[in-house]
Simulated assay, not measured.
Amino acid sequence: MGSKYTKRYTGEIKRDAIALVDSSGKTVTAVARELGISPEFLRGWYCRAKAARGKDVPGELTSAERDELRRLRKENREQQQTIDILKKRRPSS
């Protein structure tokens, strides 16, 4: 549960707000004010949506790339644990 100061927004509200920024020609701040959403929230949603589409955010990973990175990090962690276990089982010389 979030704090009493944190408002949760549904995926639909986020998508609609992002679409409004794209279609209205207004700034993120202007759209956020109209909708009563924090400009920082909407800016974050908008940047992540652009990154997920692979557009205009240099250095930002797409959703697919983030998923792959998460998977690879988990795989790496598991392999390192296996290596550590095998090292402990090996008799010292």
Rank of each mutant, 00 (worst) to 15 (best):
M1S: 05
M1V: 03
G2C: 06
K4R: 12
Y5Q: 12
T6C: 10
T10K: 13
T10F: 12
G11S: 10
G11Y: 00
I13S: 10
R15P: 02
D16H: 12
A19Y: 06
A19L: 14
A19T: 04
L20A: 09
L20R: 10
S23W: 08
S24G: 06
S24E: 08
G25D: 12
K26C: 15
T27I: 03
T27V: 01
V28D: 06
T29Y: 08
A30G: 00
V31L: 06
A32H: 03
A32D: 14
I37T: 02
S38R: 12
S38K: 11
P39R: 05
E40I: 02
F41L: 14
R43D: 00
G44L: 11
W45S: 07
W45P: 01
Y46K: 07
Y46A: 07
C47T: 15
R48H: 13
A51N: 10
A51H: 11
A52L: 02
A52R: 07
A52Y: 02
G54V: 03
G54W: 12
V57R: 01
P58S: 09
G59R: 10
L61V: 02
S63C: 09
A64K: 01
A64E: 07
D67H: 12
L69R: 09
R71V: 00
R71E: 09
R71M: 05
E75C: 03
N76V: 10
E78W: 00
E78R: 05
E78L: 13
Q79S: 08
I83K: 14
I83D: 12
I83S: 07
D84L: 11
I85D: 15
L86N: 13
R89L: 15
S93M: 09
